[in-house]
């Protein structure tokens, strides 16, 4: 009987996954025969680092607490939290874009390293899990100012490095096209 329950559940899960694949995000009609335009792959959200840093600065909050009413402070805090949530979502998009770059490079390479591919898959699963956990912590009101500042700085650093990386890829792509 246990076997039957396991197999019936397995069938239901398989059918649900299949439904999700069939109905979900339509795959691009264009096959992955080339990379996306460079600007599509560049981390975008990191550019707003300066504004976000200003927004999450504790000094700013202290200044506001002295000058404005408690109700106004609460409203500002709420709005800031909302913007920061959006920003973290944006950072996640940056991560996904970078990850997509890695997958596209792999798809268009004659030989790939299984270890490196597995590592990227693992990193991506871990990032998603931790980002979800962080999201929950933010919802619970745990302070996020310092860690977010660190993350933002790092993404900004990555942005310039990625720029150099993509320029190299673009250069190589152009050379490959010329050879054909």
């Amino acid at each position: 009987m246990t076997d039957t329950i396991i197999y019936v559940s397995l069938a239901v899960v398989l059918l649900l996954i299949l439904l999700m694949i069939a109905r979900g995000r339509r795959q691009t009609s264009e096959p992955a025969t080339h990379l996306l335009p460079i600007e599509e792959l560049f981390p975008r959200h990191a550019w707003h680092f300066a504004q976000i840093r200003q927004m999450i600065s504790e000094a700013d909050l202290r200044f506001l607490a002295k000058r404005a009413s408690p109700e106004c402070c609460r409203r500002v805090q709420k709005e800031r939290a909302q913007i920061i949530r959006k920003y973290v979502k944006g950072l996640r998009e940056d991560f996904e874009r970078l990850e997509r770059l890695g997958r596209t490079v792999a798809a268009l390479s004659p030989k790939v390293s299984h270890g490196m591919e597995l590592e990227r898959l693992w990193l991506s699963l871990r990032f998603r899990f931790v980002a979800r956990l962080l999201w929950v912590r933010m919802e619970l009101g745990v302070s996020y100012a310092r860690p977010l500042e660190q993350l933002t700085k790092m993404i900004a650093g990555l942005a310039s490095e990625t720029d150099a990386l993509l320029a190299g890829i673009d250069n190589l792509s152009a050379q490959t096209q010329d050879m054909i």
Partner: peptide, 18 residues
Amino acid sequence: RPVLYPPEFYPKYSLQVN
């Protein structure tokens, strides 16, 4: 048929992305 990159392309860039 997709246009493939040269073999040296993957190790260099994938390592950086990872």
